[in-house]
């Protein structure tokens, strides 16, 4: 569940939403006013990617 803390339209006409899940707050940008589902999906997509596994020559995950 994410919360839209604030929203505005910037000078380029882009919709900017300040979105938080309580732990992380990010600003997301949309070309038009997005439905909640789109905001939530964009928030999830903005999560930092998992770091790649580093595997030793013997196959051990370091």
């Amino acid at each position: 569940m994410v919360t839209v803390l604030d929203s505005e339209v910037d000078l380029a006409g882009m919709y900017r939403l300040l979105v938080s899940d309580g732990d992380r707050t990010v600003m997301l940008k949309f070309s038009s006013e997005p439905p909640y589902e789109q905001v939530e999906a964009a928030f999830i997509a903005s999560l930092p990617p998992e770091p790649p596994e580093v595997v030793a020559e013997d196959g051990t995950v370091l």
Binding site: D10, L11, A12, M27, A45, S46
Partner: peptide, 29 residues
């Protein structure tokens, strides 16, 4: 920048910056 998440920083406590002049191609934005 076409993505909804325009920027990503690896560490939240640092002083890294991304300045964008004429952002999204619009003067003064």
């Amino acid at each position: 920048i076409g993505q909804s998440s325009e920027v990503f920083f690896d560490r939240p406590e640092t002083r890294q910056t991304i300045h964008s002049t004429k952002h999204d191609g619009v003067l003064n934005n």
